[in-house]
Structure formats: C-alpha cells, structure tokens
C-alpha cells in the first residue's frame, strides 16, 4: 500500500491510484454507511476522501503509520464534518510536531504492512466485549455515553474496556513507536 501511495505522490501514477481506489473505496463506503450516511452521501464522501488521497499523497509519511491509518484520518474528518455536522478539530498535523524521522522511507514502507498486520492480529485477539466497543467507537462513531446506552453498560465500564483495549494494541505496536506515556 505504501508503495502505491508513494507512486501517486511522486509520479502522479493513475494506475496506482486506481488500485488504491478499488481497495479502499468499497470499505470507505461501508464506513460512511455505518456512520449514518445515506447511500448517495456515502458514495460522494468516498469520492471526496479518495480525491484528498490523490491531492495529499505527498504528505503521507510511512514511518508514522499505515496507509490505512492515514486514510482513516481523512475519512474520519469528513464524517465529523458532514455526518456529525461539527467541524473536525485538528491540532496541527501530528507530523508537524513530532519532527522529522530518520527512518528511511524505503525501509519504513516495508514495515508499514507489518505494522498493519500486527494491529489487526491484536484486534482479533481482543476479548469480544473490548473489540465490540472499539468497533462502535471507530466505525459507528458512537460516543462513550452512546456506547454505554447501546450495550446497557455503565459508562465507567465502557471507558475501562477502551483503555484496556488501547493498552493491548499499543503493546502490539511497541517496537514500531517510541514509548508512549
């Protein structure tokens, strides 16, 4: 994936873009539908996200996360804007703050797929209750309070399960990131 995006960034490679579109487009449509878009809006939001991928491809830095994670942030911000009808609140690109990385892009691109597999493995290994909550937050876009109502759980339980899930996923990524807090 990182190679495809790099071809888009450096060579404005339309074939590489088409491959990315065929992979992410149908998934992005599922995401927008789950966040409450109607079919028409979901279709348009997929266009907007993928066009942003094309226009901003040179801003993707492989050492900082997977292509899927980068595309997720674009999709998330569109969903907040259009479906939640609130402005997405950016804190300046994380990338702008964390400074340059000394990881060569080539090596980082190799690791990118590996990192993605690690997170997916760790997600699959979560207990059902924790995985369900992560899905309701990240894919359905529900707040912690909404998740608590949906699952008939105390708010504190929702928070503690999110924290537990986060810690396990962070551990799976430990060797790819600097130590977290």
């Amino acid at each position: 994936m990182a190679d495809l995006l790099s071809r888009v960034a450096t060579g404005r490679d339309r074939d590489a873009f088409a491959v990315l579109f065929r992979h992410f487009g149908p998934r992005l449509k599922s995401y927008m539908l789950r966040r409450g878009a109607d079919a028409e809006t979901a279709e348009e939001l997929v266009q907007e996200v993928m066009l942003a991928v094309w226009a901003k491809a040179d801003r993707y830095v492989p050492a900082r996360g997977s292509v899927a994670a980068w595309i997720f942030t674009i999709a998330r911000n569109r969903a907040i804007d259009r479906l939640r009808r609130q402005p997405p609140v950016r804190f300046a690109d994380i990338d702008d703050h964390d400074g340059a990385t000394d990881e060569p892009d080539g090596e980082a691109r190799l690791m990118e797929g590996e990192m993605e597999m690690r997170v997916r493995g760790a997600l699959d290994a979560l207990p059902d209750g924790q995985r369900r909550i992560m899905g309701l937050a990240f894919l359905d876009g529900l707040t912690q309070a909404e998740i608590a109502v949906r699952l008939a759980l105390p708010l504190g339980t929702v928070k503690s399960r999110m924290r537990l899930a986060y810690r396990k996923l962070r551990a799976s990524l430990a060797e790819y990131m600097e130590d977290s807090r």
Partner: peptide, 16 residues
Amino acid sequence: RRVVRVGEAIGGALLD
C-alpha cells in the same frame, strides 16, 4: 499525541 497515533492505527486496521 502518541496515544492518538495508536488510535489512528486502530482506526486504520478496523477500516481495512
């Protein structure tokens, strides 16, 4: 910010 990066990695894996 590193917590956010892990969160976004989770979002990416779930999207994918």
